[in-house]
Amino acid sequence: MSRNVRLGLFAAAGAMLAALLVWGFTGLPAFGDFQGEYGWILNDVAGHERHVTNVVASVVFDYRGFDTLGEEFILFAAAIGVALLLREARDDRERPRDEVRSDAVRAVGLMLVGPTVVVGLYLVAHGYLTPGGGFQGGVAVAAGVVLLYAAGRYRAYSAASPHGLVELAEGAGAGAYAAVGVAALFAGGLFLENVVELGTRGTLASGGTIPILNAAAGLEVTAAVVLLLHEFLEEVMYPA
């Protein structure tokens, strides 16, 4: 195909795409004109119905808690799948990349490990009071652990994330979420119904089952992300 034909094709396709986009965008509601009635209702009722100050958390871990159960198990299955596909029996060969040569990278990276983990734990712990929650916080904690590798030594990183413990935490986090749902059945409610004392709004002891599910998600996500990144790291560490 000659250059002119290709340019002609692009011009025609581009013009059509542009027309479609203009047509679509002119039909959009005005900027900031929010049409979701459900969102407005939740903003009004979540505070006194669930005693949380972060409405998003009440949706994720209560009103739509069942969806989150699915999401947790998607992540769980993904991490297990990656581990199954990538893990091989490896002998203890010399690790070639166990050294960070740049002092600046090492200093800044290692200085960031502690703060990253603390920020992550904070995000998990206050997920139902302020923005954040188990998912975001979990990835942040995992990032702190992986920084140990990126800026430090593989050995330090492996010591901080022993394989058995990470796998146990992943299973426990996913299992705990489902267990809270089943526990609600035994308490006489529906699956995942918020049956625990709701507590005082704005304190750590608020939200009923929301903090428990949030913590379970935090544990599961931290472990799943550490496990995922670990398997990818191993691929780089041991060139097959």
């Binding site: 995000l123 975001q136 942040a140 990032a143």
Partner: peptide, 10 residues
């Protein structure tokens, strides 16, 4: 926050 952890870590 979700975008932050996804785009800068994962």
């Amino acid at each position: 926050l979700s975008e932050l952890v996804a785009s800068t870590v994962a």
